[in-house]
Design a protein around this nucleic acid. Structure first.
Lengths: 237, 237
DNA sequence: CAAATAGTGTCTATAAGACATTATCGT
DNA sequence: ACGATAATGTCTTATAGACACTATTTG
């Protein structure tokens, strides 16, 4: 069996929406290389582990396992990264994973004091090629909101249509008409299941609460950019 | 640096459309394990190679390098596969790559006599976990035809709208209305560039020839399944 | 009542689905 | 002329975008 041997790691792009901003979980490295640089959380694949196992294990370790218990959340593979010079220690192939989580009550891990959710807009200069992995993860998330119901993975078990809309707005950095949005998501069968419980305390009319339905795809999709230029046909008179 | 060491391979899902069928390039293994079984072409990542380099090198080796010269064709990464037992020889991580090629005049490689393009419908029982990698590649290709201009990667340098439509029909295994299809693809800016040359010899009106334009995305996408059930809203009166 | 948020309704424009018609070739 | 394939046009329907209006709460 020819070919060189690689260490194989899994790096996580853990995204959440906090204060209407798309944020990514970063850890400050405590060892070389890139000591004291921010990086994506990750770790090496152990014996008898499949890649998804490693990703789930690391995710649970970083977010306090509460994540694992909750039905919420989403975890999927992004891609493999193996450029020859990407790790100064030697040949390391890293498999990126994308995780989407609701905003956690206590986001920081219990043990490590140097982890934080930071707005993706402000993030650059990560260790290794993690800038690239992060960019791929963010783009994957943005694309998937278009044709899947994955936005709900950013929401708690019960949420309102406005909560969901603010997720889209944060991830896409756009504004969405609340009325058209409501029509779209509530008319997609299986996207949102209304719950009996009601909200109290807020200003204004109490919103309906929903939980995730069984639907996974949005058909037809909800597109980020307008279908084409306004195609005036300008009614000049 | 903890973690076990892996051999890292690249396996190719090379797709083309031949005789209105979506076909995949397979090679018959000449050595153990899975000797004389069909498998995806692939090979180990060499020193100083990035994953894409390995994929391009293997693709050129399998398809006679002519592929490489041609501007046509498409190559992208699929995913990493590393289940503990997937290779009896030991721990091997394989990175799947998807290649889309026009139907080659001489598809078989020059050296190896045991390679063939077979219709994906008929393929199962491949070596290792290649059934799974193939399924992922086919699904990726099907999905990408919806929202990209990648179907043209299956066509030669110059092609007709009917050629392109037959690609969609073969990949999706559906029938598409030729008139609506023509309207869709010709009205998408940058998808198809008309050429001066004309076709002779065929029955019927000679078609316009096109080559690929710069556009990479289809906006709005062309969807495989109808937008929803006919959604009668039956006007019973 | 005013302010704030939730939710519905209406109109218009865009694009897809269905399908008729015209165009241009070979025989 | 006829069959075959290519290309255009028309009508209908579904859905997105824009925006007015109604509903239900707190202060």
């Amino acid at each position: 069996m020819r070919g060189n041997l690689f260490a194989v790691a899994v790096d996580l792009v853990v995204l959440t929406v906090r204060r209407d901003q798309l944020c990514v979980l970063l850890v400050k490295r405590g060892e070389r290389p890139y000591e004291s640089h921010w990086s994506l959380p990750g770790g090496f694949v152990q014996a008898d582990e499949d890649l998804g196992d490693t990703a789930a294990r690391e995710l649970a370790a970083q977010t306090g396992a509460a994540t694992q218990g909750a039905v919420q959340g989403h975890l999927e593979q992004l891609a493999g990264y193996a450029a020859p010079g990407r790790d100064p220690r030697g040949r390391v192939l890293s498999v990126g994973y994308l995780a989407l989580l609701p905003d956690l009550p206590d986001p920081e891990g219990p043990a490590s004091g140097s982890a934080a959710f930071l707005p993706v807009e402000d993030v650059y200069g990560l260790a290794f090629d993690h800038d690239r992995i992060l960019a791929d993860g963010v783009e994957r998330a943005r694309a998937k909101l278009e044709y899947t119901t994955l936005a709900a993975a950013f929401c708690p078990a019960e949420f309102t249509v406005s909560d969901l809309r603010r997720v889209y707005e944060a991830v896409w950095r756009t504004e969405i008409d609340p009325r058209n949005f409501q029509r779209k998501v509530t008319s997609t069968p299986g996207f949102l299941i209304p719950t009996a419980t009601r909200v109290t305390g807020g200003r204004g009319r109490p919103p309906q609460l929903f939980r995730r339905g069984e639907a996974t795809t949005l058909h037809p999709p909800m597109l980020r950019e307008p279908t084409r230029e306004p195609a005036n046909g300008a009614l000049a008179h």
